[in-house]
Design a protein around this nucleic acid. Structure first.
Length: 311
DNA sequence: GGTAGACCTGGACGC
DNA sequence: GCGTCCAGGTCTACC
């Protein structure tokens, strides 16, 4: 028999707004149905993959319906993964602190950024977003789930550590990222990645930054993005989109390098909430052109969400 | 510290 | 249908 879970959400949490708050919600195995406002995906649980469909039947709680019966171990893992993915462990006080620093988002209540059920998925999704256009990122993630993942789930580190470079390149079309993805997966499997230490507020941002830059395939953009996915919002993952934003929205002029520096300086007063302010400004720009994010279809964004088309 | 070129894929474009 | 060009971060070599 199928299992159901009811999960309480923090005060101010809004399912559609907060799920559709970061591009990862459009990447497989994630799927958002704008008509029914249902978020679904396959979670990799101790008892095997399980498809889940989530809705918000009432304010303050989410309902997760699974396609199979969950063991107690499965249920605990599912709650842990959903909590991580939706950042339900970020308190209302944290969001209020962000709104005090950047009051533009107080009315809409924005503050949380969707991420993945596991840190490993966050890291690989970041690598698949580097040096590539958005449609290819969407395709790569879909193929990784279809070709390597179990039962439609995102591939685990163990599966990717064992994958062949030729499989990733020829069937998942990840290009030169093949070796880097496998090396990263092997680091996770070998126990060389201490997520608790990386996420611990007692570990300085600079220390985490330097550690991430040592990882294969991780440069300044990817490291800053992984940091925000760890809950460290002081650094900005700046890319070509940021340059477009700096020019068209902030009115900045100069070389790309100068604009990057100016964007950093612009958001620096937000301190350890800088990325939230930067990101929601970018998100609002997209929504002004494409409608609210919870109305977006994955295939439509694949065709239209690229820096060159948003100029 | 800064810069040039290679690394891949997929879409746009010209013929 | 084919060839060429371009967008997109990271890495390495070089100055």
């Amino acid at each position: 028999m199928a299992s159901r879970l009811t999960i309480k959400t923090p005060r101010g949490y809004r399912f559609a707004r907060d799920v559709c708050s970061y591009g990862f919600f459009l990447l497989a195995p994630n799927h958002w149905d704008p008509r029914t406002r249902t978020f679904s995906r396959v979670l990799d649980l101790p008892g095997g993959p399980a498809a889940v469909a989530m809705t918000e039947p009432a304010r303050g709680e989410l309902q997760a319906r699974f396609t199979r019966t969950l063991s107690p171990g499965d249920r605990a893992a599912a709650v842990r993964q959903i909590t991580r993915m939706l950042r339900l462990d970020e308190t209302a006080d944290t969001i209020r602190e962000f709104h005090r620093l950047d009051p533009r988002w107080k009315r809409s209540g924005r503050g949380r950024l969707m991420r993945s059920p596991t840190f490993f998925e966050d890291v690989i999704k970041t690598v698949t977003s580097c040096n590539i256009t958005w449609p290819s990122t969407i395709a790569m993630n879909r193929r990784l789930c279809e070709v390597v993942g179990r039962g439609g789930a995102f591939p685990t580190a163990r599966l990717l550590a064992r994958a062949r470079r030729t499989t990733l390149r020829a069937r998942c079309r990840v290009g030169y990222r093949d070796a880097r993805i496998i090396e990263l997966a092997r680091k996770f499997v070998a126990g060389e990645v201490d997520e608790a230490w990386l996420a611990d507020p007692a570990t300085p941002d600079d220390t985490v930054w330097k550690a991430l830059l040592e990882w294969p395939g991780i440069g300044p953009y990817a490291a800053a993005n992984i940091m925000q996915l760890l809950g460290r919002y002081s650094r900005l993952p700046l890319d070509t989109e940021s340059i477009r934003h700096g020019k068209t929205v902030l009115g900045l002029r100069g070389s790309n390098r100068q604009i990057m520096r100016a964007v950093h300086a612009h958001f620096a007063p937000l301190g350890h909430h800088a990325f939230r302010g930067y990101w929601f400004e970018l998100w609002e720009f997209y929504e002004a052109r494409r409608g609210k994010s919870w109305t977006w279809e994955r295939d439509v964004t694949a065709a239209t969400f690229t820096a060159s088309q948003l100029k």
